[in-house]
Amino acid sequence: MCCSGFLKIMMFVFNGGIFLAGAAIMGVGIWVKVDSNSLFGLLENVKNVPPELSQLVYVSYLLIGVGAVLLIIGFLGCCGAMRESRCMLLTFFCIVLIIFLVEVAGAVVLLVFRNVAEDLLKTLETDVRDSIRKDYGDQEGLTSLWNTTMEQFKCCGYNNYTDFNGSPFNLKDGKNLYPTMCCNSTNTNTCSENMATMSEVEGCFQKLLDWIESNATIIAGVALGIVALEIAAMVVSMVLYKNIGSKA
């Protein structure tokens, strides 16, 4: 009886962790979906985008789906332990096992993507620069999206300020202007060419690589924690399943 009660408490701990992790993952997925002013929104304005990068737009749906499933199995595990239902515990074990296998596959994909992300993004360089030089300062949607991106990531252009050379904004009134985000000075409403300040502002390409790297590490850490909880939960659920069966 004491052992059974301890196992139930363990199920609550494990499934409580899974439930909270699911809520966190779903929250991140919803945030990614709602946050339309991200660098990925720029892909819609660039031709010849590699299919691999286009798929990143759907990452929010994946996160929401995984989070929702984790919420369900967390609830299911608690109910199965409290009600001592073998059917619920077996269902819980099967669902967690499937999620575990999917997460392992996802981790492999993430590791592979981290290695090829730079090469994929480099293939966009020419098309992104052409898009900037053709439409920045003329097309309101693209201009606003680039401005928001540069403000959020504290960057300038794809590689640097020279990406804006020849753009409608740059040639406006013959003043050779650049976006204010490309200047280190925050006390000016305009930004003309000044090598001493603009050359120091990092391009958004490198900023995006840094963002992918830092977030991939965070996601990997969270995933390892979830995997540990899932393995423990599967072990405990099977022990409870066996104990309930022996009572019958």
Score class of each variant (00 low, 15 high):
residue 31 W to E: 00
residue 219 I to W: 01
residue 177 L to K: 15
residue 102 V to M: 10
residue 42 L to Q: 05
residue 234 M to I: 00
residue 55 Q to V: 13
residue 85 S to V: 10
residue 183 C to Q: 03
residue 176 N to R: 09
residue 81 A to D: 09
residue 241 Y to Q: 05
residue 178 Y to N: 11
residue 50 P to I: 03
residue 103 E to L: 11
residue 207 K to V: 06
residue 50 P to L: 08
residue 192 S to P: 03
residue 187 N to V: 09
residue 52 E to D: 13
residue 56 L to G: 05
residue 82 M to I: 06
residue 168 P to R: 01
residue 62 L to Q: 01
residue 236 V to D: 14
residue 66 V to A: 05
residue 214 S to C: 03
residue 222 V to P: 04
residue 113 F to D: 12
residue 183 C to G: 05
residue 128 V to P: 05
residue 195 M to T: 14
residue 125 E to A: 03
residue 182 C to Y: 07
residue 153 F to K: 04
residue 106 G to I: 01
residue 3 C to D: 14
residue 152 Q to K: 02
residue 159 N to W: 14
residue 92 F to E: 02
residue 20 L to N: 00
residue 68 A to V: 12
residue 205 F to M: 06
residue 121 L to C: 03
residue 17 G to R: 15
residue 134 K to H: 05
residue 61 Y to C: 02
residue 140 E to D: 12
residue 61 Y to N: 13
residue 80 G to M: 11
residue 178 Y to Q: 02
residue 147 N to S: 06
residue 149 T to M: 07
residue 143 T to G: 02
residue 107 A to Q: 00
residue 12 F to C: 15
residue 20 L to A: 00
residue 130 D to K: 09
residue 47 K to A: 14
residue 28 V to S: 00
residue 43 L to T: 12
residue 75 F to H: 12
residue 180 T to V: 13
residue 27 G to Y: 15
residue 175 K to Q: 12
residue 87 C to A: 08
residue 216 A to N: 06
residue 81 A to M: 12
residue 207 K to Y: 06
residue 207 K to L: 07
residue 212 I to E: 11
residue 228 A to Y: 01
residue 29 G to W: 06
residue 129 R to M: 10
residue 55 Q to R: 15
residue 163 D to V: 09
residue 23 A to I: 10
residue 105 A to I: 02
residue 153 F to C: 08
residue 122 K to F: 08
residue 120 L to D: 09
residue 239 V to H: 10
residue 10 M to H: 13
residue 124 L to A: 11
residue 221 G to M: 08
residue 176 N to C: 04
residue 22 G to F: 05
residue 8 K to Q: 09
residue 72 I to N: 06
residue 74 G to D: 14
residue 163 D to T: 08
residue 163 D to K: 03
residue 43 L to K: 08
residue 52 E to P: 00
residue 16 G to L: 13
residue 89 L to Y: 14
residue 69 V to I: 11
residue 127 D to S: 08
residue 246 S to M: 12
residue 152 Q to W: 03
residue 54 S to A: 09
residue 17 G to D: 07
residue 123 T to R: 12
residue 208 L to A: 02
residue 223 A to V: 07
residue 18 I to V: 10
residue 5 G to K: 11
residue 75 F to Y: 14
